[in-house]
Amino acid sequence: MSELGFEGKGPLREAWELFLESSIGKAGLIILSIFALMAIFSFVPPMIDPMYHPMKGVDPEITTSQPPSLRHWLGTDFMGRDILSQLLAGARVAFLVGITAALMSIILGTFLGMLAGYFGGVVDTLLMRTADVIMVLPTLLVILVLASLFKGLSIWSIVIIIALFRWPGVSRVIRAQTLSLKNRPFVEAAKALGASHLRIMMRHLLPNLVPLAFLYMTFRVTAAIVIEAALAFLGFGDPTTVSWGMMLQWVWKTGHMFKAPYWLLPPGICISLITLSFYMIGRAMEQVLDPRLRKDWEG
């Protein structure tokens, strides 16, 4: 305590400072920010020259897949489209799919899990049985069936489907945490003060659940990115966008799998790296959240 008293340093800021002390977390953040930069730069190529448009921009002088050159830094695909600009556009899609799908499933899962845990009884049974049913459905298979039914899905429907299928896991964890929180003295104190259910949930439970939800979000992001990539690779992606999975599918379909490593490797490495970065961030967050993993010894 300073002479002037305490500065208002909330636990979230404290956690953030702890997070930054973890080298694995920092490494994850750095990799992730590189991808974020890629996503931002993806808007640039078509403006320089429409030739670099990731989907429509075909180099008129090229008709087959070309290795890297000055004109095309990572080479071109089979019809002369620039691989680098496709890769950049893929980063944008990965963020879009990964983060929106994860965010939606986390919000859904957190609220449903909190409701189930807090109210218990019939609400709990109803929500959790629904969760069980969804959890045992094989996500990829269901999406494949839907995709073939509707003859291909737009990127937004893929996002929504992933979100709808991926909340049960989160809600289970959040429910368990809510159960342990709702009998803590600080929640009981709020009850004794006459706080409404809404107030208890929004002001006392939710802030305590957010860090855990955030942790699960990092894992969900990777899952969503991988699902989208797998869908695209299997040919059920949105044909109007370029994603890394889509790029891999083109490599495969046009028979360049073993002939054009400059085309195969970049999307593959990007998928692995972005997954890894979210995983690393998740690991670091776990360390921050779980006091047992904290290194510092409190005398």
Binding site: P11, L12, R184, P185, F186, E188, A189, H204, P207, N208
Partner: peptide, 12 residues
């Protein structure tokens, strides 16, 4: 309550 570590919401 007994436990001052449990009876206050850490986020407030």
């Amino acid at each position: 309550f007994q436990d001052p570590y449990q009876s206050l919401n850490p986020y407030l």
